[in-house]
Amino acid sequence: MGDKLVIELNGGRYALDTALVTGIVEVERIPFLPGQTSFVGGIISLRGEPVAVITLKKALGISESTEAGPKKVIVIKEKNKLLGIDIGGSNVSFLWEEELKKMPVNSEQDRYTDGVIDPEGKKIKLINWAALMVEAARILSANGI
C-alpha cells in the first residue's frame, strides 16, 4: 500500500501516497490562473516548473471559501503531470506502511476518495488523486469563461 501523508482538514483526515509527493511549498498567496473556477485555486512554481493548484477543501466539499494567510501546497507528480493541492494551514503527519499492513481497507468511495482506513477508530479517507487531476484538466480546458 505504501507510506501515506495524512492531512487533517476540519476534523476529517485524508491520505495521499507519499510516493506521489514531490514537494511541499509554503506560500503567502497563490497567483490567479485564468479560467480558475470550481476548486481550481491558482498557480505556483516548484523547481522551475509551473504547477496548477487545486483547493482540497473545495474539492471535497468541506468549505466553499478560500482561507486567507499562508498556505501549504502539496505538489504531486505522476509521469510528467504536476498538480498542487492547497491544504491551507492544515497539519500533516505520516502513516508508515508497517502500520498500514495491520489495517483493513474499506472500499467505500466518494467522488474524490477511493477507500477508507480506520486506525484506532479514526477514519482516514484515501484521496483519489487521479480523479482530481482529470477533473482539474477538464475545468481548465473549458472553452472560454
Binding site: P31, G35, S45, K81, A137, I145
Partner: peptide, 25 residues
Amino acid sequence: VPPMSRLWGVSGIALMGDGKPVFLL
C-alpha cells in the same frame, strides 16, 4: 502542460526572476 495544456486565453507561461509564474496571454 497537462492539466493546463488547453488553458483558455493563455499561450504559455514564464517564470519571473523571483520564481513567480506569470501567464503569457
